[in-house]
């Protein structure tokens, strides 16, 4: 069973809630799909690390010993990545989309494609199962391919270890990496917060989630920061047929636990929040279609 924890808006508590879920009773495969800003491993000090190189996109590079300055490539590039600088043609690594067209049309074969080999996938064991995460090298296009690789590894580990529950800590937003995090999962848990942005973003991500026909749950985190907004979100969920799995108050204990490198359910299992998270988890895993 794969459960994706997503949010649309960043910083609503996806990772803290995923970490809390991962440290309840049963063993889990914890999958950090926020490859842009992977964080969960910080809490779990995974051992037996496996490291795999992920080759993302390629970037065009000019061999100036061959370039005759004909500038043909400039006209072909649709990403405005090639321009003239003084006496030579230059390609902006930031703007290059890696489409290879310039390299194909260059009459002198002066443009080659260079692979970026700085992204990585890691996996290892932690106290309550296995953990897999990806690290996209800065500035790379997050196409979702590294997310797919991370998820494949998680499924493989699930088979090898017999641990059935896979928790996916998703990235923020609604773009490609989020789509990759949701594809083929069984349940989506949307973590939101009672702010105008939280509700706006919930509405936007819901449109996306709906396309996947999953079991959907909403958790309203930091619910006491604005009770009336929390009620508004609850009402919206009800009108749209989404189960609110629970509300969590703002609790400093969550941050205190993080600072000590632990999840709230690990460090304070008997706290109000710890108990609430346990209850939410049971609701999510038990409910059948």
């Amino acid at each position: 069973m794969e459960i994706a924890v997503i949010s649309g808006k960043g910083g609503t508590g996806k990772s803290t809630i995923s970490a809390a879920f991962a440290t309840l009773n049963g063993k889990v495969i914890l999958t950090d799909c926020d490859v842009d800003a992977a964080n969960l491993y910080l809490l779990f000090n995974p051992s037996h690390k496996e490291e795999v190189i992920y080759i993302g996109g390629t970037k065009a590079k000019i061999d100036y010993s061959k370039c005759t300055n004909c500038r043909l490539c400039i006209g072909y590039c649709r990403f405005d990545a090639i321009s003239r600088a003084r006496d030579k043609v230059v390609i902006s690594e930031i703007l290059c989309d890696g489409c290879v067209l310039c390299s194909r049309i260059c009459p002198e074969k002066a443009i080659t494609m260079v692979a970026n080999e700085k992204s990585r996938m890691f996996s290892g064991s932690f106290s309550n199962g296995e953990i897999v995460y990806g690290r996209l090298s800065p500035g790379e296009e997050n196409t979702g391919k590294l997310v797919n690789m991370v998820r494949e590894k998680a499924k493989q580990l699930s088979k090898e270890t017999g641990i059935e529950t896979i928790i996916i800590d998703g990235p923020p937003g609604i773009g490609c990496p989020v789509i990759s995090s949701l594809t083929g999962t069984n349940k989506a848990v949307i973590v939101t917060e009672p702010t105008i942005s939280g509700l706006n973003d919930l509405k936007r991500i819901r449109v996306l989630v709906k396309k996947f026909k999953l079991e959907e749950y909403v958790i309203i985190n930091k619910s006491d920061l604005n009770d009336s907004m929390s009620s508004r979100i609850k009402k919206w969920c009800k009108e749209n047929g989404i189960t609110v799995a629970g509300m969590l108050p703002f609790d400093r204990k969550i941050v205190d636990a993080l600072v000590q490198g632990k999840s709230i359910t690990e460090l304070y299992p008997d706290s109000t929040t710890g108990k609430k998270i346990n209850k939410i988890w049971n609701k999510i895993i038990k409910q059948k279609r």
Partner: peptide
Amino acid sequence: APPGTSCPFIQTVA
């Protein structure tokens, strides 16, 4: 800017 350090972030801060 958008969150993260990948392409959307770079395109904004660049």
